[in-house]
Design a protein around this nucleic acid. Sequence first.
DNA 1: CAGAATCCGAAGCGATACTG
DNA 2: CAGTATCGCTTCGGATTCTG
Lengths: 103, 103
Amino acid sequence: MKKEINCPLNFTMSLIGTKWKPLVLFHLLEGGLRSGILQKKIPGISNKMFTQTVRELEKDGLIKRTIFPVVPPKVEYKLSSKGESLEAILRNLDQWGLDNSKN
Amino acid sequence: MKKEINCPLNFTMSLIGTKWKPLVLFHLLEGGLRSGILQKKIPGISNKMFTQTVRELEKDGLIKRTIFPVVPPKVEYKLSSKGESLEAILRNLDQWGLDNSKN
DNA sequence: CAGAATCCGAAGCGATACTG
DNA sequence: CAGTATCGCTTCGGATTCTG
């Protein structure tokens, strides 16, 4: 059973519409980050969800994963050009939240 | 257990980050619609999810629900000003999907 | 350090039947 | 016509444990 896409908007949401994906992408806007550093920037995310999230983002071509063959292991994540094209959307979502989360 | 908000972006996603919410909002951009009409514009949505979705959008102040005391029953949904402020985001999400869903 | 594996409860969602 | 109630499957997500 595949995801049903009713309109382009739905396609976009199928790629970034989860709890953590927008957050991961957002923190990569300023440049690539080592795995541990990226994860620390996202308070509350579990190890499992972090791995799962970056795996799916990579599969969908939004981020690139680079493995450095060193000890201890080092992995870096960065936005792909496709991921970078989401910048305006991500910043808009963040700005809207800023403007509307006044308690 | 409440939703955890790590950054403004997350707040926005907590309001519109589901399968159907963006679609409902998107179809209301052109103006208010009667319940049945709105639902028909969203192929695949079940009756339950339609009701649940508009209820939450109303609770969060993104849409307004107007009941006309007539027979048969008539209910109309329209964007609130807060909902209208999402227009740019919704159109961007749709446009990005259009640009990136080329098979 | 990066992340895979497992267990389990919570939430999302659809199908169906029913009400005023 | 608009909406509610219920059942049950699927997916999401957290805690914990384990590996190279």
